[in-house]
């Protein structure tokens, strides 16, 4: 029984990590209808920025803050310079963000080299909890906590603030928001920056768990795309549920069907899409 509980907890923690990784992507997709294929690369960049500042003897949390800020700024620059040219043009978006991910990944490789790195767990959280017979790292519980906090924040922003109202309206009817005299361009820049910052944040927090290495950006991207699609496009709530679902099923799948471990996430996605072609919480598409 205790091993079952341990694995459930493991799956939950893993799912929350998935949620953090996918949150930025799903928000950009939901509000702006842009598939940001550079999302995984921004994640990687976030982790590396923390790595640099920690090496300079800075506190983990300050480094994390710097990383979030820098990725947000990069988000603003990218949106203003490039992304804004491709709104509504899906194939161009694919090409552009794909190209960007190539460039950023190569810059990362240039600056930080090819060696694998890992972020140290912040000293405050570098301990393991003993629950009965099992041992559970405190840092993972912290990730669960941050994941919940992020969900709460998103819920609050969406339903209780003016920005949330504008964005919800924007998702439903772009032209109307513009007609109301709201600067849609500014909103979009803000949303993209927010999404990029979330990628940076999850990179910083995921760094101690996943580590950093060349080629990681693609894996992160595919994972987050899958989480987003299972949840349904444009619904962060869907992503939240689907991330937990994927985390838990994957963890148990590894134990019960070890030979399928390469496939589990893809199978979940396939099954969900066959039953519900628009994802769990996606709106019916015409």
């Amino acid at each position: 029984m205790s091993i079952f509980l341990a694995q459930l907890l493991t799956g939950l923690a893993y799912g929350m990590l998935y949620f953090m990784i996918a949150a930025g992507l799903t928000i950009i997709l939901g509000v702006m209808n842009v598939v940001n294929l550079a999302h995984g690369t921004l994640f990687m960049l976030g982790a590396y920025i923390v790595f640099t500042f920690i090496s300079d003897e800075l506190n983990f949390w300050i480094a994390l803050l710097i990383s979030v800020l820098l990725t947000a700024v990069l988000g603003i620059i990218l949106e203003k310079l490039l992304i804004k040219h491709v709104y509504g043009k899906e194939l161009e978006q694919v090409l552009l963000t794909f190209g960007l991910s190539f460039i950023i990944a190569d810059v990362v490789k240039w600056i930080w080299g090819t060696e694998m790195q890992t972020l140290p767990v912040p000293a405050l959280l570098d301990a393991s909890l003993s629950i009965g017979e099992m041992v559970f790292p405190l840092y993972r519980l912290f990730v669960v906590f941050i994941g919940c906090l992020l969900a709460l924040l998103l819920w609050y922003l969406e339903s209780k603030t003016r920005i949330g109202a504008i964005i919800r309206a924007g998702v439903d009817d772009r032209a109307m928001v513009g007609a109301l005299g709201i600067n849609v361009g500014l909103v979009f820049t803000g949303v993209f920056a927010f999404g990029a910052a979330l990628a940076g944040l999850s990179g910083a927090l995921g760094g101690p768990l996943i580590g950093m290495y060349t080629g990681m950006d693609n894996e992160i991207l595919v994972t987050s795309l899958i989480v987003v699609v299972i949840g349904g496009l444009g619904s962060w709530k869907g992503s939240f549920i689907s991330a937990i679902l994927v985390g838990v099923i994957e963890t148990f799948g590894k134990v019960w069907f070890p030979s399928l471990s390469m496939l589990i996430v893809f199978l979940i996605m396939m099954v969900v899409l066959i039953i519900r072609p628009q994802g769990l919480f996606g709106r019916e598409v015409a």
């Binding site: 090409l95 190209g99 190539f102 460039i103 990944a105 810059v107 490789k109």
Partner: peptide, 9 residues
């Protein structure tokens, strides 16, 4: 990869 990316952009 950088040059390839730039060409795509």
């Amino acid at each position: 990869p950088m040059i390839m990316g730039a060409i795509l952009v």
